[in-house]
Design a protein around this nucleic acid. Sequence first.
DNA 1: CAGCTATGCGGACACGGTGTCCACTTGACT
DNA 2: AGTCAAGTGGACACCGTGTCCGCATAGCTG
Lengths: 183, 183
Amino acid sequence: MERADAARNRARILEAAAQLFAERPPHEVTMDDIAKRAGVGRGTLYRRYPDRASIAVALLDEHERDLQERLLRGEPPLGPGAPPADRLAAFYAAMVDLLEGHSHLVLGSELGRSRFETGAYGFWRAHVRSLLVAAAVPDPDALVEILLAPLAPEVYDHQRTVLGLSPRQITQALGRLAAILQR
Amino acid sequence: MERADAARNRARILEAAAQLFAERPPHEVTMDDIAKRAGVGRGTLYRRYPDRASIAVALLDEHERDLQERLLRGEPPLGPGAPPADRLAAFYAAMVDLLEGHSHLVLGSELGRSRFETGAYGFWRAHVRSLLVAAAVPDPDALVEILLAPLAPEVYDHQRTVLGLSPRQITQALGRLAAILQR
DNA sequence: CAGCTATGCGGACACGGTGTCCACTTGACT
DNA sequence: AGTCAAGTGGACACCGTGTCCGCATAGCTG
């Protein structure tokens, strides 16, 4: 049972963090900044969010839930019903949308390798693995991570920012990757 | 023109760093540790290597040079002469060897996104891009990063350590990826 | 409405790593 | 041997982190 002031502060913290991640590169946002902006003490901040990553994860949570829902019960080709290759391509397209809209948040998480331990990643992994199984690919476990690797926020950011690729180009290239499942 | 003591100290620093990266996770190795182990002051260390990443890059340099040489002038399928798909598969296999042998170094670099700025990455990129061009793939620029993404040290480490995959399994899965070029 | 309790708050604090700076040393050239 | 610039090393100040504990207050109870 969460107290009213606790709930209010959590909302403040998340909003402050969202603002800060939007206006600066993530490694320049300190826990102190977030606490200050939220009008909250350090102790209060650390009580719920032990580090920057957990804040960004919380921020992304709703968007991820939404996509998860569409993967499980949405219309094909994203949802069930379409051939695995098409569903994978649709998944890639949806992830590009998500990265595009919230890349600074995802990047804010600075997850690095701990990215693999988030619940969301586990879900993507399970989803893609099921597509691989449906497509009768040998050794699906080995291929899953490889197919998810291009969705790493750092990779996407580099493609967009440094190389100047458009979301559309990236989506199409990923679509070519998804075609692997067609054999 | 480098003075004799400077050269000696550089060698010491690199050896100390190699030892430390081999015996501990990278984020537990501080610049101070490296300086201590090398028997060198902090100032001396920072003079050449402004951060941990640059040390790891220096350590990896020779191995990368070696692979670059084999890509340019070695026997097919790694070197020139074989079909693009085969050369890409061979490149993947060689990279898995490199990651397997020196993963703690690569990880030590903690490159994160700055990984894309290293000279070695630029070389991999140019190489794979040339294979894509040779295979007449549309929009090679968009596909290059995607094909290199699975070689990110974090991804490889996760596959090996957490998922318990063997280098052979990973190589084979990457080989399946390389088959994209066959159409 | 008053009293109670435990949950939550917040700022002070100690710690550890980073990077800089400058007085001193030492190698290389004359 | 003398000169001087390159190189050295450790002290120092700074910053971010995470913890801890006295205090406030929300929410329950009678």
